[in-house]
Design a binder for these strands. Sequence first.
DNA 1: CGCATATATGAACACTTTCTCATATGTTTC
DNA 2: GAAACATATGAGAAAGTGTTCATATATGCG
Lengths: 136, 136
Amino acid sequence: MTASGDGGSATDPSRSGPGDATDELCDVHLVHEDAVHEALREQEDPEHLTYLADTFQILANPTRLQIVDALSKRELCVCDLAAVVGVSQSAVSHHLRQLRQMKIVRYRKDGRMAYYRLDDEHIASLFAIGLQHVRE
Amino acid sequence: MTASGDGGSATDPSRSGPGDATDELCDVHLVHEDAVHEALREQEDPEHLTYLADTFQILANPTRLQIVDALSKRELCVCDLAAVVGVSQSAVSHHLRQLRQMKIVRYRKDGRMAYYRLDDEHIASLFAIGLQHVRE
DNA sequence: CGCATATATGAACACTTTCTCATATGTTTC
DNA sequence: GAAACATATGAGAAAGTGTTCATATATGCG
């Protein structure tokens, strides 16, 4: 997932006025220094971005999106979900675990059945806005 | 899709319902037939879901989310983006192509520079709602 | 024109993901 | 307790992804 290259970091404190000072944060010459430094200051917490990337990763699968789609309207048990999305119980269960781990779905146990639903409204929003983007 | 394996039908004819003769959609026994059929009827277009999965896939990378984060506040050229996210120009360019292909970013050419920005408001919304979900 | 700069892209390797098969866990029923 | 059922999970093969290196395209400048 992550495997980002060098951390780089930055904010060269010695950089100052014009001239040919080494305006390098990475390995490229800075074209718009102010914008870059502003962007660096306002950057989101990298941990949040990594976690968000993991969340999108779990949503990045048509079968899991079918599950999210179905659960956006009603709760369903694992067996029903397998029938709806047309894959094996094992595959659905694996998908559900991933969705659970990223807090995209939650479930309640009733006897030997497990009834799944979306975890919160953010998920329904992400799905709905994503569909809007796709439909345009 | 590939419903292979054992048949194990065991249909339950005592269950009522407006007689869609399909008591077996996959290879598992249906526990809540009505809910399953309703979910099947209301299913989103599979092509949309595949495209949406591709979109989430492109968002499912911390470096690309850093790019989206930076571009959510200002337009930046490729060189600046490389400095901000701390990876090589080549890597950024590869990422930008993917973001372009999924209509997550767009760009304008000015001389030899390419200035990128987010493609539409849906993207900013997806990013913002995703962050809310992460922060909870 | 020739050279530097800015961006784009192809190939390849390390790493990750997804599916299926086999099996484990927990619950209900006999 | 044993069998049947609903769900969960581990392992491993096949496919996919992200980065780097090398190089291509295109613009600007002297």
